[in-house]
């Protein structure tokens, strides 16, 4: 088994294979996700975010690392827990919060909602709320790249719980047999909605221990270390682009918040959250930057800029109008309308 965080920590300093500029980018992405998700939670409690929302607080390093290693044109396929991956591809906080706040300035003008964030221009090819559905879809996008000789990689994010649904296994086999340029990323945050994954899974590593069934390497990494994630992602993308087929990566991580909405997560054993918070990905990364000699001032400036972006986005969204009724029946069919009869 390749526990790749070991390799990652062997880096030789700020100007190693990742470098200063990329590290600052990875830091900024993580902080952006942290601040935007925290804001989404606050707005939910104020009843300004309605319906549901699934936060990635504590899982920021996975989104930042995988997106940070992508090239323009690479495609992301996300779940309902997809705000982080959408932001990580460069979609604005305003567009994301606007959608969560069901405003006309939202990414999909309120027609999709929190669970279906999509920004085709940024390569975010949808967020899918039926567990496992998007793994085969990512295979199809990768098939297109293979067929047309295009070099983009399709990257599919999902949780530990998703490894027990049929579509996961169908997609893994399919991708392996067809040697598709797709990367499957399992964010193992230890829980499904409320049930610990270990209670309902026959193997210890829900994704990693299944990799061998599909002829793939078992890759389990520290999902709270953005450098480890970034390096693993880069290697998987290189493999995909070189025509050497899919990868399945299990990232060990933890969500600081509940599953969704205002879930207080009472099902967690005492002390678990606190232990994981000691391994908070943003804390880890901040320490790394300091250790590499990046000044506290630089880091604080990023923090302040991000907070400002999130504050401004919040105010813009609060002031934004609700969607107009005339979009109710648009885009059901490709002609722009909804006519099912003449």
């Amino acid at each position: 088994m390749a526990l790749q965080s070991d390799r990652a920590n062997g880096g030789s300093g700020l100007n190693d294979d990742i470098g200063e500029a990329k590290r600052l980018e990875l830091y900024r992405t993580q902080v952006t996700i942290r601040e935007a998700e925290q804001r989404a939670y606050d707005l939910f409690l104020q009843n300004l975010v309605k319906g549901t929302s699934h936060l990635s607080l504590g899982q920021e390093a996975v989104a930042a690392g995988f997106a940070g290693a992508m090239q323009k044109g690479d495609l992301s396929f996300c779940t309902y827990r997809g705000h982080a991956h959408t932001l990580a591809r460069g979609v604005s906080v305003e567009k994301v919060l606007g959608e969560l706040m069901q405003r006309d300035n939202g990414l999909m003008r309120g027609k999709g909602g929190s669970m279906h964030l999509t920004s085709a221009d940024h390569g975010v090819m949808g967020s899918y709320a039926i567990i496992g559905a998007h793994l085969p879809i990512a295979c199809g996008a990768a098939w297109r790249a293979q067929y047309k000789g295009q070099k983009d990689v399709s990257v599919c994010f999902f949780g530990d719980g998703t490894t027990n649904i049929g579509a996961f296994h169908e997609a893994l086999n399919f991708a392996a047999v067809w040697k598709l340029p797709v990367v499957f990323v399992c964010e193992n945050n230890l829980y499904m909605e409320y049930t610990p994954i270990g209670d309902v899974t026959a193997v210890h590593n829900p994704a990693g221990d299944r990799a061998g069934s599909y002829g793939l390497e078992k890759i389990v990494i520290d999902g709270n270390d953005a450098d480890a994630v970034y390096r693993t992602a880069r290697a998987a993308y290189d493999k995909a682009r070189a025509g050497r087929g899919p990868s399945l990566v299990e990232c060990l991580t933890y969500r600081h918040s509940g599953h969704s909405r205002a879930d207080p997560a009472k099902y967690r054993p005492e002390g678990e959250l606190e232990r994981w918070k000691e391994r908070d990905p943003i804390k880890i990364y901040r320490e790394r930057l300091l250790q590499f000699g990046i000044g506290e001032k630089v880091i604080e400036a990023i923090d302040a800029e991000v907070r400002n972006v999130v504050d401004t986005a919040t105010e813009t969204c609060k002031a934004a109008p609700m969607p107009p009724m005339d979009i109710l029946t648009t885009d059901v069919y490709a002609d722009g309308g909804w006519a099912w009869r003449n």
């Binding site: 098939w143 047309k148 169908e170």
Partner: peptide, 17 residues
């Protein structure tokens, strides 16, 4: 793998096939 068949068709369709 009926889900893989239809899912793959969809992913291919949304990206240009």
């Amino acid at each position: 793998s009926e889900q893989a068949i239809l899912g793959a068709a969809m992913g291919a369709a949304m990206t240009g096939l």
